[in-house]
Design a protein around this nucleic acid. Structure first.
Lengths: 340, 340
DNA sequence: AAAACTTATTAAAGAGGTTTAATAAGTGTT
DNA sequence: AACACTTATTAAACCTCTTTAATAAGTTTT
């Protein structure tokens, strides 16, 4: 909505950074064509960025009939990001650069069981001190988040309505983003998949509070009017059972994965339901919760309910990895928006 | 993504128009504050627009200590829009101004049963001739649309893969937008409701091809990866019935409205399902398909499946009116983006 | 090896925004 | 009624991006 020279300048810089990282390296004219921005502008930005050390001259292109063009690459070490995710018993963090290379990693006890943020703040202070070029912080939490504020986090009521983003931005003077774990995971998978920006994805998982899902629709995370979106355990599926009940009723206590025919039918029905409503491109299962053979059965079973040409791709992915990648990706986006 | 001086200028003009229409009237400084654009820029635009007749000086504000400010209003007659929607047996159109006032209205036979666009084109030519200030055309069709192209339109296969937008933009040199009927309706309801831009809405209807739904999620229309989104008749609901079967099995052939207990339970389950997945703000029913008393029953019945604080508002609305309003709103958005 | 041609970069002029100063048009006080 | 004070508008200086011209640095042809 807002358009001012300042916002334009900021967006140009962000776009330059993004493109350079995507392309790996580029010449002035290449970027100018790609972004639709005149080459003198790119040239001026490059000069500034090179002086600041944000850009590296990697060499000259081969000539194609005239003067050889200088080729520049983004210096991935110029800024670092911190991603940290909070679980009940453990707190993991990684420090990474713009390319996603991990520079440092660690874990400690869970901080969610504590009364306040003291020990989390101390941990973060230590990390930020060790890496003074950290320029963004991404925090993942197992709860509903609205614009950096923890809205609802079952089991840790002391953090309800806590403005985590505001608190740490104040404290560190570094931009902060906070996101729900599933939303981060689905975002991470999306970024990793290389799918178009406006696709829809669903991440299914079975948390300790029953099964749930993270939705990405048209490239946006869906939160819902009361932050209830994704609570698929409530979906009525049979005459007298909802999704959760259908899974539990037939729970094989020996194994954590779903495999009985009844469980598979419940999942098929859920997939049919989701398809009939939002028709996503892909549905993702957690690798530790389902077997490849089961996936095939689900794929076949779903077509009982929906013409198979409309059914989504079914994929298995590593949840924790996607989660971290999602946080990284949020943090990188934030970094690249920083003014010079 | 793209930022250039041209796009900036265009967006400034669009924002000025939008704000003037929303506010009814404004002074230069008021708009400058609202849009975050310097007042000399607004001043220059105003001068140009007034000269073109797009703006009207409505008088001077009362002084509050200094020179009295000139107050301007948008001239709603400066540009007109044409909204036209195609149904099997009838084609309706309205001509309206930026405020949504209807200037002209009419209907003829259905054009979808014909082999090509000849008669539709002729109709539109007549209308455009009568109203030479028409600056946008919005067309509603009962089929899937992707960027102005008819993707899938059951029953009228001769129009499959027809680029309606491209065809008429070429023909009339006026910007054209094409949208699916349900999507237009849900959009129209949204605009009319005054709800925030990022809310989620669902429009339920029972078409001749079985029940369906239009989804607006985070303010965006949901089409789905194979344009199958909203086909809720396929949702499995009971041991051996999906939503459509549940409705039909108990169809009271005497009346078109849903009222039996079994039908109501099916609808309750659908609402529970939709809530558990996307948790929308409101679900809208068509006024000719449901009674107010039934709605109350549905509201109560749904809370069997989902905690009632998460359930959406249930509303009844006039489908055709919302449809038209949605087309109008699309057309107005298009007009306001036109360069000077 | 010099002339003709290509392409990249730098320099200068132009366009459209912002900021700041100057002017116009009021109100209120003594 | 003259003066101080407010607020709206106009004018001028400035900043940033674009467009276009000039220059630098190669390649190819003769």
């Amino acid at each position: 909505m807002k358009v001012t020279p300042k916002s334009v300048r900021k967006e140009i810089l962000t776009n330059i950074r993004k493109s350079l990282l995507e392309l790996g390296s580029s010449t002035i004219v290449e970027l100018s064509d790609r972004l639709g921005i005149s080459f003198p502008t790119i040239s001026k930005c490059f000069a500034q960025m090179e002086k600041a050390g944000e850009l590296i001259l990697v060499g000259l292109d081969d000539s194609n009939g005239g003067r050889r063009a200088k080729r520049y690459a983004y210096n991935p070490e110029y800024m670092l990001g911190l991603a940290i995710f909070l679980e009940r018993t453990e707190t993991h963090y990684i420090v990474y650069n713009c390319l996603g290379d991990v520079k440092n990693t660690g874990k400690t006890d869970g901080v969610l069981v504590e009364d306040d943020l003291t020990s989390l703040t101390k941990l973060m202070e230590k990390i930020v001190d060790q890496h003074p070029t950290i320029r963004s912080i991404a925090i993942g939490v197992p709860g509903s988040v609205d614009n950096g504020k923890i809205f609802y986090i079952p089991g840790y009521e002391q953090f309800h309505n806590l403005d985590l983003k505001g608190y740490f931005e104040q404290h560190f003077s570094i931009p902060v983003v906070v996101e729900n774990d599933m939303n981060a995971a689905v975002l991470g998978f999306h970024k990793n998949s290389g799918l178009k920006n406006n696709t829809s994805l669903v991440y299914l998982y079975s948390g300790q509070n029953g099964p749930g899902a993270g939705f990405l629709i048209n490239g946006d995370v869906v939160r819902g009017s009361t932050f209830f979106a994704g609570e698929v355990s409530f979906v009525p599926q049979y005459n007298d059972r909802n999704f959760r009940q259908a899974l539990e009723n037939d729970r094989d206590s020996m194994t954590a994965t779903f495999s009985t025919d009844a469980q598979i039918d419940a999942i098929c029905r859920l997939i049919a339901t989701i398809t009939a409503i939002i028709n996503p491109h892909t549905i993702i299962f957690c690798s530790d919760e389902i077997e490849k053979t089961t996936l095939k059965k689900i794929s076949i079973g779903s077509s009982k309910y929906i013409p198979s040409k409309h059914l989504p791709n079914l994929t298995i992915s590593d949840w924790k990895q996607d989660y971290l990648y999602g946080l990284q990706s949020l943090g990188i986006t934030l970094m690249l928006m920083e003014p010079n």
